[in-house]
């Protein structure tokens, strides 16, 4: 119970940090940290009924969200040389204020739904909902493609929190399918980011090749 809540508090803090962060590198690290922290959630939330299922889920999550995604996104960013201040549609202070409001709304909404009796912590559903709100907000309020992918990951983390914590009895095949889909999604998005950068850096060079016989 206590450790689960500790993880959930970390998730809330990482979300707030993301909402207020202007550095791309820092944002990627924060999302990676959030992924690792959430990787322990299946084990801690189901401490009394621990099985191979949850261990595999934890290992897969930590490997993909904590190691593969950050490595891949750092590569995309480095090749694209976009480590600059980001200029969002909504400012950082305003983002933080909205984030705190969203946290309140999440708790209020979850009080109105009948929760299953045996969930590890009453904070699970509200924190999951807050992550979903934060992710959606990051996607619509940030301009750079990489930041939108980070927003998508936060959104996905929120849904994962809910899935692991509240609706725990998903079959392993589906869990693997979901993880695989998210993995491929980020992979395809990353490739698209490569192309976006190539397109908008080299578009003029491409035009020069028209002058030949």
């Amino acid at each position: 119970m206590l450790t689960t809540n500790f993880i959930l508090v970390l998730v809330v803090l990482t979300n707030l940090k993301l909402l207020g962060s202007s550095r791309l590198g820092a944002s990627i690290r924060v999302v990676a940290a959030q992924g690792v922290v959430l990787g322990f959630l299946p084990i801690l939330a189901h401490w009394h009924e621990l099985s191979l299922h949850f261990a595999l889920l934890a290992a897969g999550t930590i490997a993909i969200k904590g190691i593969v995604f950050p490595w891949f996104l750092f590569r995309a960013v480095r090749e694209a040389e976009v480590i600059r201040e980001i200029e969002p549609y909504v400012g950082y202070v305003a983002s933080l204020v909205l984030g705190v409001l969203a946290l309140g709304v999440s708790f209020w909404m979850c009080m109105r739904l009948p929760m299953p009796e045996n969930i590890a912590s009453p904070w699970l559903a509200p924190v999951a909902l807050f992550s979903i709100f934060a992710g959606l907000f990051l996607i619509v309020s940030r301009k750079r493609a990489v930041n939108q992918v980070l927003g998508f990951l936060v959104l996905e983390n929120g849904i994962y929190t809910f899935g692991v914590g509240v609706a725990a009895r998903t079959p392993l095949l589906v869990e693997v399918g979901v993880l695989l889909d998210v993995f491929v999604a980020v992979f395809v998005m990353g490739i698209t980011i490569f192309h976006i950068n190539r397109e908008f850096d080299h578009i003029d060079v491409d035009r020069l090749s028209a002058l030949k016989d």
Binding site: Q148, F152, G163
Partner: peptide
């Protein structure tokens, strides 16, 4: 990619619900 992935992510939440 982005709009459909976000939309379908919400459908995943629906699955958990």
């Amino acid at each position: 990619l982005l709009i459909c992935s976000v939309g379908i992510a919400l459908a995943l939440l629906a699955n958990f619900f």
